[in-house]
């Protein structure tokens, strides 16, 4: 935003100082709880409970993490989440591409009607109960399908993808391919998909994060413990405070057990969030790109 080499006025310097101070303040407010949780998770349990941890770990150790990995349900929840995320995301991406390409074509007769059908669902819905009943009627309760099919397509992502197709695949390319005898199926497979790397990355990311963090559909559609995704297990432990006595039973002292229970929670927060946070720096620029594509009025 620096356009000149004119010496900044007093007002502008004040502006800059205030700007940087406020940003730093917000930055620290976001960062501090994250660092605290990380530090608490590797501190001594009694120090955490006594409130001796402020910023850096106190007597670092890995007891909390040991407790997390000893917990049977956390392991199975992790695997279930991974399964639902991978399967669900594959279905999502295929469905989104299938919907977005025809809608991006100018000569697709009926485009506006179908678009309206799609967009209307974002503004009006039948509600929770009818949505639940359809899943029930299709006999999908307590199956993996209840986790991946009801949300198989996000209209918002279809719009983003459609806008991408419209702006980055020139119509001349289609004409050229058609003259060479290429049909629409082949065109999508050989031209559109290979040219759509960035947008596929973006929607894959959006969908995958959504599946990984999904909690409500598991709550209403599943009641078998061995099928629970990680988020349900996390809710039981973090929010309903349901840490089974068995896993901590080798510790006799009640106070110490209580402390370890707190420590376990901090470790669990870290373990369950780290996978996403690790991928995140690599995909950050795609995320930004996705939001920018979406912001173009299509």
């Amino acid at each position: 935003m620096d356009y000149t080499s004119i010496k900044p006025s007093f007002g502008d310097r004040m502006f800059t100082i205030i700007n940087y101070s406020l940003l730093s303040l917000f930055f620290l407010m976001v960062l501090y709880p994250l660092i605290f949780i990380l530090s608490a998770s590797i501190s001594d349990p009694s120090a955490v409970v006594a409130g001796k941890v402020w910023l850096w770990p106190v007597k670092p150790n890995l007891m909390g993490y040991e407790a997390v990995f000893k917990h049977k349900l956390i392991g199975s929840g992790f695997l279930n989440s991974l399964y639902y995320t991978v399967l669900g995301t594959i279905i999502n991406v295929i469905m989104t591409l299938l919907a977005a390409y025809p809608l991006a074509r100018k000569d697709f007769y009926g485009k506006n009607v179908i678009m309206l059908l799609f967009v209307f669902t974002t503004m009006f819905s039948g509600g929770l109960i009818p949505g639940y009943l359809i899943v029930k009627d299709l006999n999908m309760l307590n199956t993996v399908w209840a986790m991946v099919l009801p949300g198989a397509l996000s209209v918002w992502n279809v719009i983003i993808t459609r806008t991408y197709f419209q702006t980055s695949i020139p119509p001349e390319m289609l004409e050229a391919a058609q003259i060479d005898g290429c049909n629409d199926f082949k065109f999508v497979w050989k031209i559109v998909i290979p040219l759509s790397g960035p947008i596929i990355a973006v929607i894959t990311l959006f969908y995958a994060v959504g599946h990984w963090n999904q909690f409500f559909s598991a709550l209403i559609f599943l009641d078998k413990q061995h099928m629970y995704p990680l988020q349900i297990i996390l809710r039981d432990i973090l929010i309903q405070n349901d840490v089974s006595a068995i896993m901590l039973s080798d510790i006799q002292d009640a106070a110490r057990r209580e402390a370890l229970r707190v420590l376990l929670k901090y470790s669990l927060i870290v373990v369950s969030t780290v996978p996403l946070m690790l991928v995140y720096p690599f995909v950050q620029k795609h995320f930004v790109k996705g939001v920018m594509i979406g912001s173009l009025k299509g």
């Binding site: 919907a99 059908l117 009943l133 397509l153």
Partner: peptide, 20 residues
């Protein structure tokens, strides 16, 4: 191409609206 997404929208969005 769009048949499957359309089927999805009908089954999981419009049938529930009818079910409402």
């Amino acid at each position: 191409l769009i048949a499957l997404p359309l089927l999805y929208i009908v089954v999981f969005k419009y049938i529930p609206m009818y079910g409402a």
